Computed example of a mutant assay.
Amino acid sequence: MSEFRQQAKINSVLELTTEQLCDPASYEKVYHRPLHDEPMPSVAALSELMDRLRAVLFPGYFGNSSVSPESMRYHIGANLFEVDRLLTDQVRRGYCFFCELERGGECQDCDARARRLTGEFLGALPQLRELLAEDAQAAYEGDPSSRSPGETIFCYPSLVALTHYRVAHVLHTLGVDLIPRILTEMAHAATGIDIHPGAVIGRRFFIDHGTGTVIGETCIIGDNVRLYQGVTLGAKSFPKDGQGRLVKGGARHPVVENDVVIYSGATVLGRITIGQGAVIGGNVWVTTDLPPGARISQQRPLGVPLVDGGGI
């Protein structure tokens, strides 16, 4: 076949494929129509947002590593100025993503709401930094291979995932649409740790190694909890309505009380309570409540004591 005839055949296929893909019946279920001339949220902009927030929350570790106490005010102020601009824009885009209005033009309500909620988020940053500092300390104390809390801040995937989660959880609590989920999914892609922004996680939380950990939307986790890689805190069942559709919302994930340790590969499902100080061994499947202080592992009944670390 001559080069001319081959190119003509390719052009014919391209034209036919274009016609098929432009048929409304083909794209109607996967097409996002921007409303109010507002573009989609930007992963690139949100990546910059998180880079600047890390520079604010952990000065010297991220961003300008030569920051000093004398230059701290400029360093923090310059980054917060950009955080305010980026976040306001992305929060507005998140609202417009779900907007049910079909008319074009500006949406003043979404813009004003985005500015207000961004201001509230910025006001929460001192407390957020305090929580992350405690998470870093917990990682240092809980991992014998760690030589300093700073090593956990700079190197550990759990601190990456927790930084994204704690930022996203504040935004989720404020009622921001879409952006919190994007932020936690960015961390999920980078670390393998999947934390829904709706989960409630207490102080001094540590996930050792982390890969494959899943924490569901309605989980409630207390203080001083430690998980290992591959732990699932998930839902046991998904109720459906009369039309067979999943019922959204509702408490369906575990409550994990203070001082619990859950070892690698364990699966904890349903709205059950894991009592304070309980220890769940590796690869154990738990679907019922555990009392405070319980210690369980494979092939051991509930309540049989274990030597620390034995079989876990």
Rank of each mutant, 00 (worst) to 15 (best):
V13D: 10
T191S: 11
T173Y: 04
M50N: 09
E185M: 03
H209A: 08
T273V: 15
A266K: 08
I274H: 08
F205I: 01
V256I: 15
C155D: 00
R52L: 15
D241A: 06
G249L: 02
Y165I: 03
D23V: 02
S237E: 14
P292Q: 04
H196K: 07
G230L: 09
V261Y: 00
F238Y: 13
V247T: 07
G175F: 03
G222T: 06
A112P: 00
K9E: 15
L306Y: 00
A133H: 12
P39F: 08
T88G: 14
R113H: 11
V91Y: 00
T232G: 10
G277Q: 04
Q6T: 11
T287W: 00
Y27G: 06
R226W: 00
V170G: 00
G277T: 01
G281P: 13
G192S: 05
F206G: 06
T213Q: 09
V30P: 04
A235P: 02
V225D: 02
D241K: 09
V83T: 10
R113L: 14
T273N: 05
E134T: 07
L178Q: 02
L14M: 11
D109F: 13
T213R: 01
A190W: 00
R92Y: 07
I280A: 02
L131F: 12
G249M: 01
G202L: 12
P24I: 06
G216P: 10
E15P: 01
Q6M: 13
P24Y: 09
V255T: 14
K248Q: 15
E100K: 12
P157V: 10
D135S: 05
N283L: 06
P24T: 04
V56G: 11
G234V: 05
R252Y: 03
P34R: 09
S66Q: 14
L53E: 00
A161W: 03
I193L: 08
V167L: 07
V261A: 12
H196C: 04
A25C: 06
T288N: 13
S237F: 10
I274M: 07
R33F: 15
F81A: 14
P180H: 07
A44D: 15
I262Q: 04
G60R: 09
N258S: 09
L183V: 07
V214P: 10
H75T: 10
F62V: 08
G104A: 13
H169P: 13
V160C: 13
V67F: 06
P301F: 10
I201P: 14
S47E: 15
T118Q: 07
V255F: 00
G105C: 05
E120C: 10
R203M: 05
G293M: 03
C99D: 15
G309V: 05
E28A: 14
L53R: 02
L46K: 05
L21P: 06
N64H: 12
D23G: 09
E134D: 13
T118A: 05
V279R: 11
